[in-house]
Amino acid sequence: MINYKEVLLKKFQESNNPKAIKRYEHSLCVAKRAVEIIKEHNLNIDIKKAETAALLHDYAKFLTMDDFFEIVKENNLPSEILENDYIILHALLGPYVIKKELGIEDQEILDAVKYHTTGKANMDPLQEVLFVADFTEELRPNVENIREISKRDYKRAIALILEYTINLLISRKRKINPLSLEAFDYYRKYLVLDLSKIKKVVKTIEDDHNLVKDIKVYDARQNTPYYDFVIIATSPSLRQMKAAANYLKMEFAPRMIEDGDFWVLIDLNDIIIHIFLEEQREYYGLDKLLKDVPEIELD
């Protein structure tokens, strides 16, 4: 069985590029992050295949323009591909190098490598995972917010990565590949406010069982990457408060439920729910703390 870590290290070292070791460490971290994303979201993706694609995604990183010219010529590819920004050619042409030098013919792996920088509309799951992993691996600086969001909602992370990249290229007056524009046009729908889960929460504890009142919903997406919304509600009694938490537990399988003497916190991953008895809601004053966070009015 081929040890792709050793193969990649040798390939990078042969380039004599001073950034070779740093790029190798990046590739290892991308492979690690790809596996994390698959497990975080319980995706039906072969782990070994994902690790291989992630390890080799930058296999052609240190090739020269002359190398890329030869690849285009050898594979009878349209010469227009060389008009793309040099920085993405290692992705667009990398699959041909990987196939020739390593004998990998798995099209899912090759396509994931091809689109890991530009993305494309309606990527398959492996392509999506590699696209996100490349941007959110632990060594990449200044992406903490998107990294945290990717742990909860990787589709939204894709849209945010595309938006960030396109804006960065515009600010630097760099060429934007049409694939990235098409990808953003497709994935931008994941940036649209979706109230369906919030309405389901409210229906569960208020409409169906009448266990809470005075519900406030806050949109925290611009304030923190750790969750999207905060719901604060008042329960008339301790018994009703506990019952509300139990109904939410049955309906949503929370990540965590924390009980106080007169309050309960339910963590639904993207929604944090605080239920208080009336005096404790006033005492803790969370509504005042969130006064600058946009409030959502539900129909």
Rank of each mutant, 00 (worst) to 15 (best):
Leu93Lys: 06
Pro95Phe: 01
Val113Arg: 05
Thr64Pro: 08
Glu70Val: 14
Gly94Lys: 06
Tyr59Trp: 15
Gly103Arg: 00
Lys114Gly: 03
Ile81Trp: 02
His116Asp: 07
Glu74Gly: 09
Leu63Cys: 11
Ala112Tyr: 09
His57Pro: 12
His90Phe: 13
Leu110Asp: 05
Lys99Gly: 03
Leu55Asn: 00
Ile87Asn: 12
Lys73Asp: 04
Ile87Trp: 06
Asn76Asp: 06
Glu101Met: 00
Ile88Asp: 13
Val113Phe: 02
Ser79Ile: 04
Leu110Tyr: 10
Leu93Asp: 10
His90Val: 15
Lys99Val: 06
Asn76Tyr: 01
Ile109Arg: 05
Pro95Thr: 07
Thr117Cys: 02
Leu55Ile: 07
Gly94Cys: 07
Ile109Met: 12
Ile71Asp: 04
Ile81Arg: 07
Tyr96Gln: 00
Gly103Cys: 02
Leu63Gln: 08
Lys73Thr: 01
Ala54Arg: 01
Tyr115Asp: 05
Leu102Arg: 10
Leu63Lys: 09
His116Trp: 09
Ile98Val: 15
Ile104Asp: 15
Asp106Gly: 04
Lys100Ala: 08
Gly94Phe: 00
Glu101Gly: 00
Glu70Tyr: 14
Asp66Leu: 14
Ala53Thr: 14
Leu63Thr: 11
Asp106Asn: 12
Ala54Tyr: 08
Ile104Glu: 15
Pro95Ala: 00
Glu83His: 10
Lys114Trp: 04
Gly94Ala: 03
Glu74Leu: 14
Thr118Ala: 07
Ile109Glu: 08
Glu70Leu: 15
Glu83Trp: 13
His116Glu: 07
Lys73Asn: 05
Glu70Thr: 14
Tyr86Trp: 14
Lys99Ile: 03
Glu83Phe: 10
Leu89Arg: 12
Asn84Ala: 06
Glu74Ile: 12
Tyr86Val: 15
Tyr96Asn: 01
Tyr59Pro: 11
Val72Asn: 03
Glu101Ser: 05
Ala91His: 13
Ile88Lys: 06
Leu77Phe: 00
